[in-house]
Design a protein around this nucleic acid. Structure first.
Lengths: 211, 211
DNA sequence: CCATTATGTAAGCGATGCTTACTTTTCAGA
DNA sequence: TCTGAAAAGTAAGCATCGCTTACATAATGG
């Protein structure tokens, strides 16, 4: 191709941005956008690079492969989910455990409903390397532990922990897997309503059980 | 290239199997295997063709694109799941509704636990075109309707229908999404046990609720 | 018996993940 | 302040994928 500019005249930004500055963050942000637009399966390393204004080989300096990129994105998403859940319980730590559980469930479902594609990234563990991310594991286990403590305080049996998670997780997945229309639930708003009603029923079952 | 054999001598099976016979079924079967081996995401049209002993362009005579292939596979998987569930209720149609519900839930979870990757195909609706398959919709709605009737007979409120499905679906997805190890559940056998215990708790909640 | 139609093959396009070789920038130590 | 190694890009290319098009072969029915 024989390219040799006399100085650094001409061209656009000849050298200013050879180094991106913080490509890593930019790639995560771009991928987060891609996930939001077309879902996790549609994410492409090349497209993320394109959006970050960088060549197709550049990302591999920061993420050895696609899975590691997706894992970093999942970490960020988990962080947001964790924050949403914690923010919901924090103001009512003194109230009855079942009320706190309801708040957690609602916040979890709300977040999954508002960010279905991001939720898909954190739950679809075929796309990420969950074990490799200590922060994701930690934040996940914190929610799990909190729910466990509240269920204990509410007098629920041990199996209730898995049951509660399965229930909330099932609702969230039905939403992102698009199963809800089949149940006469079409809008996101309706979805949240239906999920809330189901959640109440479940918690009510736990309460009545004690009586 | 210039290829013109004098007769039809030489070569392996020169003409015998130019036409496969029933490529369609063979491709579905091959894909079912691929799904079982490496999960739905790993399925490749070319590999399915390879296993059917056919060129890479051949599948497109039968399935216009990958999604249609996957949908056909999902149809087959749904058929098997439907059969498993129906076989479980059939012998106990005269027993109490909650017992039948338990049987359905158990059969559903059993099947999902035994065929996690196949279950992934039928539930991951980003991979298939659910709306285009009348048989899949029908069989799915049959299970849904059956559960609905049983819940009504058991005196459960309307929300219980969605709640019950979400619960069972959540357990099944936690299994295939590999969330169970996090809950101290490591083997498939343990998984089934834990899911059964959670299922009982859920149904118990419904029962007690009536009292 | 032969023409039509169904079913395969061969080759190739654009895109992907990832690698390798090279270039440019940054920055720490003399 | 200079310099040389390390960091962070680029460019080109490999193997593979989904899918299309042009062609070859087999099955079929008038």
């Amino acid at each position: 191709m024989a390219r040799r500019p006399a100085r650094k005249t001409a061209k656009k930004k000849p050298s200013r941005t050879y180094h991106h500055g913080n490509l890593r963050e930019a790639l995560i942000e771009a991928t987060l956008q891609l996930v939001q637009e077309d879902g996790p399966e549609a994410v492409t390393v090349r497209e993320a690079a394109r959006r970050a204004g960088v060549s197709s080989g550049a990302p591999f300096r920061h993420f050895p492969n696609r899975t590691v990129l997706m894992t970093a994105v999942a970490e960020e998403a988990t962080h947001r989910l964790h924050a949403a859940v914690m923010a919901a319980v924090e103001p009512i730590v003194d109230r009855p455990p079942l009320m706190q559980l309801r708040a957690i469930g609602t916040a979890y479902l709300q977040w999954a409903s508002d960010n279905p594609t991001h939720f898909a990234v954190v739950s679809n563990r075929g796309l990420i390397d969950y074990e490799s991310s200590s922060s994701m594991k930690r934040e996940n286990e914190e929610i799990q532990a909190l729910m466990g403590r509240l269920l204990d305080a509410a007098g629920a049996p041990a199996e209730a922990k898995l049951a509660a998670r399965a229930f909330v997780y099932g609702l969230a997945r039905m939403r992102i897997d698009n199963h809800l229309p089949q149940w006469g639930v079409d809008s996101p708003a309706e979805a949240l309503g239906a999920m809330g009603a189901a959640l109440d029923l479940f918690l009510e079952g736990l309460i009545k059980r004690r009586a």
